[in-house]
Design a protein around this nucleic acid. Structure first.
Lengths: 225, 225
DNA sequence: CCTGCTCTTTGACTTAGATCAAGGAGTATT
DNA sequence: AATACTCCTTGATCTAAGTCAAAGAGCAGG
């Protein structure tokens, strides 16, 4: 597949006409990022935003003592850091490639001149920002109003709904998952153990099977302590 | 001031030409909301978004047991619930008028047909969503990586920067502030007491004076325990 | 196969902050 | 001025979850 085709397939570019597409294509860069590379750090001047083509990128906040909170795991096809170029002049979080990845980098200045003329692109941006917002609102709700076992149960249910199966594979290490749930690996480990011991799930490495979806739902909704 | 003038002054409408303004004006409704009225609840079908003209509206998440977390206090001139009409079909949180308020309600369907044609409006929406996103990211960082005294110190500093003075007035009750900081009034009360006892601030009702901004900054950044 | 990794689990302990309970303190209502 | 509010503070516990420490489990490289 040529780079042209690869770009054209992205949801972001799909609904553009050829002229708009060529205009954007001329300003973007495809970058190959090796696993472990930091794309940007919180506070860096925001010079553009990204679209993930392949691989995995993690967006996270970090505390001075090394603790981290994962805001989002970017999936191929998603854009990220788009808010940074519209408000404030710095990235509001850190981004790291968790494995070898390909990204499209869209420089800020050139993009802004395109976006003000193209309602189609604006709508894409708006949709993406809205999705982020919804996810963040949910994460805020989780952190402030729900405890770890509840968050874990909700996370597992969501994963299994996504795959449409009671079998699921954790997309990351458990340590990373803990950081996404706003806790640490030890606490996650204990929460998983509780679920295992009460017969709700079974765990083999990163593979999990939901044995009692009903109970899991009750735990997620807070009905079950 | 006529309603026409009042609307025209809103940042949201300011940069539109007369034709665009009239088009929008014909679809929006100005509503008078008395204090304590719930505008919408999480899960309600999203029929439109709002602009706050006057008064105060609080956006919050609620737990079944009555606990609440305040996502945002809307200030006059700001829009809210705009994400709801672009992604998902329900409001993702609750909204309540904290005092008598005037809002502009913009119905979803009519607005969507306007937005796809107007890059100016799109950019307004994008800017607002980006601002929300930044704030939510900061709140997530606070909840997951910082403890209550740190959050409180950062909040006070922000307020005083906003007013450009070491004197400041809390915009809400302390109970509401606690809910915004992700804690409860008892804990907030104790955190304030610690700051008072160490001579960093003085408190008289809802009025606070920052006596030692340097220490407050150190507490906010986590240098000082 | 051993050695040294990283990731994970489990146990013992500590702690920030929530909960429960009891008063104040200010303000409005009668 | 007495009553009844709402809001706030303080004290005494309780508990979820973080910290510290150690050991198991799986893997990669020599």
């Amino acid at each position: 597949m040529t780079e042209h085709q690869q770009l054209r397939q992205l949801a972001f570019f799909k609904e553009l006409n050829d002229a708009e597409f060529e205009q954007l294509r001329s300003i973007v860069q495809v970058r190959h990022i090796s696993g472990g590379t930091v794309l940007f750090l919180q506070g860096d001047p925001a010079q553009g935003f990204y679209l993930l083509l392949s691989g995995r990128v993690r967006i996270y906040k970090a505390a001075p003592d090394g603790r981290e909170f994962t805001l989002h795991q970017i999936q191929p096809g998603q854009m990220f850091a788009e808010a940074a170029i519209f408000r404030g002049n710095t990235y509001p979080a850190n981004a790291i490639a968790e494995e070898d990845s390909e990204v499209v980098f869209v420089p800020k200045a050139e993009f802004l001149s395109v976006v003000t003329k193209s309602p189609q692109i604006s709508v894409k941006i708006i949709a993406s920002l809205s999705a982020w917002l919804r996810e963040f609102a949910e994460k805020l709700e989780n952190l402030s109003l729900r405890e770890v076992p509840q968050r874990l149960a909700a996370y597992l249910l969501k994963l299994s709904e996504g795959s449409g199966s009671s079998q699921l594979d954790l997309p990351t290490t458990k340590a990373k998952l803990a950081s996404e749930l706003g806790t640490i690996s030890e606490t996650l480990s204990r929460s998983l153990r509780k679920l295992i011991d009460s017969g709700v799930i079974s765990v083999d490495g990163n593979h999990i099977e939901i044995l009692d979806a009903e109970s899991l739902r009750e735990i997620a909704s807070g009905e079950k302590p």
